[in-house]
Design a protein around this nucleic acid. Structure first.
Lengths: 127, 127
DNA sequence: CTCGTAAATGAGAATGATTCTCAAATTTAA
DNA sequence: TTAAATTTGAGAATCATTCTCATTTACGAG
């Protein structure tokens, strides 16, 4: 694993949780100014392909990357875009029972308001 | 509602269930050769915006459009791309309980093999 | 070491889906 | 029927992502 690959992985694992490739690129540049966007995309894709990180699809938005590969779901804030991990019961099992197979994957993304934005919204309404 | 809008809606409601905009465009052209791709996208987006049809997001693939707006989920075949409606218990309720809000939407897409492709796969292996 | 092959990289071009722009055509209402 | 509003087609623009390819870098055999 090269220094650039290591840097990208470290970023996903620390400061850039649930970040887009573009954001990771920005951060990576601060430490290695010469790094190219293609390298970031290339390595993120490879890491996700190898199951070392997880690629998260968000409808109509750029993909994000997650250090946690274990089963869990995501919610993204409709206002600020922040993303959090959520555990919504055992969706996997529920799908298994419904489809009678185990040979599937699924993408679930919840569009909600994060706590901060929800508060801001209600205060705004009260004004 | 103009003739073109009506045509697009009819296509989604009949021959083009779970189709992409491109596919709907192809079909629309057969009936109205002059119709433009932008018109198809424009009207599909408007119809979805107004809740008359539903836009379905599939990770890494073009969006599809569904005549059924009521709550249900989708599974797409990893081999042939065909999409079917599925009902996987009450995911909505499960998320509600987990997040303690009702102010959200969600996209769920299951990636599986359709019956035909699954059979084809197993026969292929047996050869 | 040191040479050569393989792998990784950067820059920018290419791609694909979708939206935007804007002038021309069409519809609508008064 | 006539001005104003809406819809349309064509193609440009956009955005995320991947691809190309020449260059750099890393690495193993001698």
């Amino acid at each position: 694993m090269t220094a650039k690959q290591q840097l990208i992985l470290n970023l996903v694992r620390s400061s850039c949780a649930h970040c887009t490739a573009e954001k990771i690129f920005e951060e990576a540049r601060k430490e290695m100014p010469g790094i190219g966007l293609a390298t970031v995309y290339r390595n993120l894709s490879a890491l996700a392909e190898d199951g070392i990180i997880r690629r998260i699809y968000v409808s109509g938005e750029p993909d994000r990357f997650d250090k946690t590969v274990e089963d869990h779901d995501h919610a993204v804030c409709k206002n600020c875009g922040r993303m959090i991990d959520v555990n919504v019961g055992d969706i996997k099992k529920q799908i298994e029972e419904s489809l009678k197979t185990t040979d599937f994957t699924y993408d679930l993304c919840i569009h909600d308001y994060c706590t901060e934005c929800r508060h801001a919204r209600y205060s705004a309404k009260a004004e």
